[in-house]
Amino acid sequence: MEYLLEGIQRALLLLLSFDPYVVSTAKVQLMVSTSAVVLAAAAAIPLAVAFCFREFPLKGFLLTLINTGMGLPPVVVGLVVFVFFMSKGPLGFLGLIYTKEIMVIAQFILAFPIILSVSISAINAVPVSIRETALTLGAGRREVMMLVLREAAFGIITGVLAGAGRVFAEVGAILTVGGNIAYSVATEQGMVTLSKTRTLSTAIPLETSKGDISSAIAFGLILLLITFILNLLTNYLRRRYAGGAAQA
């Protein structure tokens, strides 16, 4: 117990002193996961709208595939991305292996089907009578889509935040493609370790296995803080869109 309390105490010290290793690791996590979620949302939401507003063959089968994508094992995603981008792979010439960019790609693949699937469900849940009322009031196709999107905003936000929750928590994919790399640099204060492709979620198991419980707890606390902020954001947006007086 004493060991745990000491670990928490040292972790708080690391956080409050803005320890360069902790700060750089958090930055990598935020940069990679936020980029992945933003890109996945930017691709998935318009696609969900197009999916719901158009009829085409094998639509039902495609939806099943999308839903299957929600449960992709992160390690398998990491492995597939790795195989494609390794030096001898078909996309190896891009030289992206063990970079933040490839970590974004891997997490994009994880977040995209979640946001797409939840957005499709949210749009489909908007009653047909909403579309018909908009049409009868003189709305064109684009205006009907915007209205339906607005009506589905609550569900879509939930989808985006579910995607964010998935990528911020996952380890397997970014560990495989990113390599969990940190490096040391000499500074006036001595040698300082900085993250290249190490994130909070990949650093925790590593530091735990090294016996550096305080660093692991510090990383864990930041992850918890991020989750807390995500939830605050969810509640704020839900209030705004579900009850709101916002205008289209």
């Binding site: 009578s129 909403i130 018909e132 009868t136 009031l137 205006e143 709101g244 007086a245 916002a246 205008q247």
Partner: peptide, 26 residues
């Protein structure tokens, strides 16, 4: 032309937004 349904649905938002919708698209 415009149609009023037997069970009218309201868009999310306030009454003003609902009334303004058709005018905004015009």
């Amino acid at each position: 032309m415009v149609m009023v349904f037997q069970k009218p649905v309201m868009f999310s938002g306030d009454v003003y937004h609902n009334l303004a919708f058709g005018l905004r698209v015009r």
